[in-house]
């Protein structure tokens, strides 16, 4: 019972941050500001959902270790992907500035 309550709290938290990220993606004005929304909120959202799921599955040692590995993997790859996309946007903008003589 307690595990379900804690698990649900984590899941609700995760869904809240996923929703915030999506709303930010829709409302923020340009590519780079939208990336702030998706990168940060999705990273935390995914982490919270994964932690929440371990409570529903009984929290076996295997599962906890798997979830920790998945969270580490997400927290390494998400910012790396965001960095590459941000760099592409930045270089495209800078390229346009140079091309137009600004």
């Amino acid at each position: 019972m307690l595990a379900s309550v804690i698990g649900t709290a984590f899941l609700v938290g995760g869904i809240f941050f996923f929703t915030a990220g999506t709303v930010g993606l829709l409302r923020f004005p340009d590519a780079l500001t939208r990336m702030h929304a998706t990168t940060k909120c999705d990273t935390l959202g995914a982490g919270l959902v994964l932690v929440g799921l371990t409570f529903f599955e009984g929290g076996s040692m295997y599962l906890v270790l798997k979830v920790i590995l998945l969270i580490i993997f997400l927290w390494v790859t998400t910012p790396a992907a965001a960095h590459y996309m941000a760099r592409a946007v930045y270089r495209t903008r800078e390229g346009h500035k140079h091309a137009s003589g600004n």
Binding site: F16, A20, G21, V23, G24, F28, A37, K40, C41
Partner: peptide, 21 residues
């Protein structure tokens, strides 16, 4: 990461988005 997500959530749900990128 918690602080960053809370900050983005506040901005995303704010009535007027005040950004200066």
């Amino acid at each position: 990461v918690f602080k960053a997500s809370v900050q983005v959530a506040e901005l995303a749900f704010a009535r007027r988005i005040a950004l200066n990128p």
